[in-house]
């Protein structure tokens, strides 16, 4: 798919092609205003414009149609034509997708982009195609961090004894590897849980921390970039195969443009929201580069768990990122 990425989009515009009418319903579960949401809105608008309105994009944001968990099977059964949800959810069906939850796989935004445009991305795309979903876009959400109420977390040892709200298999394994206990609670209860100190901390990207007012209920933020949250825009394979070639090309090109745009925004948004959290009074500890190895070393058990669970594809992915 990404081999098309270097073609200039202007070619299609100039050709003034005719597109077959189509209706595409796209569901995702992120609030409007988030940079991925903005990317998706723009993606839909461009496709409608470039196809002269022949392709009707119907967007369902905020989980108003489907939650992240429903998305996989709804997409596979054609409930919606396109769906975007987190790689963590996909890892329940396609274990290799857990790679984004493996700690410290990517240390910089550019690294993720390069990997996803190369063999690394191809492995994931083909694993997804095996279950019946074509990956159109990897939407970067941003790096994951820890916020907590107890103390500044300046080394993995500082996690010992903390209760941290967690979602997903591998992030929970990491919390355990660092000596803390993962706590599972409903999304609607996290704010209160932090406020009343039912849990000591939580993990998320800084964009979400601003969105969910974490600064009101936690004191310390640790920037250790332990994970790179990824959202997958998938399209039902059967639906895709039935689309005319020019429509496919149009969608793929627009998706590639959007993917690049989102990646740039991710960096800017992570920086902006970190500043917001600082301004609102959170005490921030940014792990210095020369200490990252300690954090990575302590997280190695999670690499092993992933390798066991994700089989051959998993090992290949790890080899690629480890080779860098």
């Amino acid at each position: 798919a990404c081999s098309n990425g270097d073609e200039t989009p202007k070619e299609t515009e100039a050709s003034g092609e005719e597109y077959e009418p189509a209706t595409i319903r796209l569901a995702y579960n992120l609030p409007s205003g988030h940079h991925i949401s903005e990317g998706i809105e723009e993606f839909a608008k461009k496709i409608e414009e470039k196809s002269n309105g022949q392709i009707d994009m119907q967007i369902f944001a905020n989980g108003q149609l489907l939650s992240d968990t429903d998305m996989n099977q709804s997409l596979l059964t054609g409930g919606v034509e396109m769906g975007m949800n987190s790689s963590t959810i996909w890892s329940s069906t396609v274990p290799a997708m857990g790679i984004f939850d493996v700690p410290y796989v990517f240390e910089a935004y550019e690294e993720a982009g390069e990997a996803l445009n190369g063999e690394f991305g191809d492995i994931l795309r083909s694993e997804m195609e095996d279950v019946g979903v074509k990956v159109l876009m990897f939407g970067d959400y941003g790096f994951g961090q820890f916020a907590n109420n107890k103390r500044p977390l300046e080394s993995p040892e500082d996690f010992r004894g903390l209760k941290i709200r967690s979602v997903g298999t591998l992030p929970s394994e990491l919390i355990q590897a660092y000596g803390a206990s993962p706590v599972f609670m409903g999304g609607g209860e996290v704010y209160m849980g932090l406020q009343r100190q039912t849990v000591d901390g939580a993990t998320s990207g800084t964009t979400a921390m601003v969105q969910r007012s974490y600064d009101e209920v936690t004191d310390y933020l640790t920037i250790n970039n332990y994970t790179y949250f990824e959202f997958i825009l998938g399209v039902n394979q059967e639906f895709w195969d039935d689309l005319p070639e020019n429509t496919q090309t149009l969608i793929e090109e627009t998706a590639n443009e959007t993917e690049e745009w989102i990646r740039q925004q991710t960096k800017l948004e992570d920086e902006r929201t970190l500043q917001v959290l600082k301004d609102r009074g959170m005490e921030v500890y940014e792990v210095p580069d020369d200490e990252l190895d300690i954090w990575k070393e302590a997280a190695m058990p999670v690499w092993e768990i992933f390798e066991e669970e994700a089989g051959e594809a998993g090992s290949e992915l790890l080899d690629i990122v480890d080779g860098e």
């Binding site: 099977q73 596979l76 963590t88 890892s91 069906t93 979602v167 997903g168 298999t169 993962p182």
Partner: peptide, 17 residues
């Protein structure tokens, strides 16, 4: 639906799997 979930081998995204 259950059959499809079984075929796909879907597990919960938690420590219990």
């Amino acid at each position: 639906h259950v059959f499809m979930t079984f075929e796909l081998g879907v597990i919960s995204t938690s420590l219990l799997r």
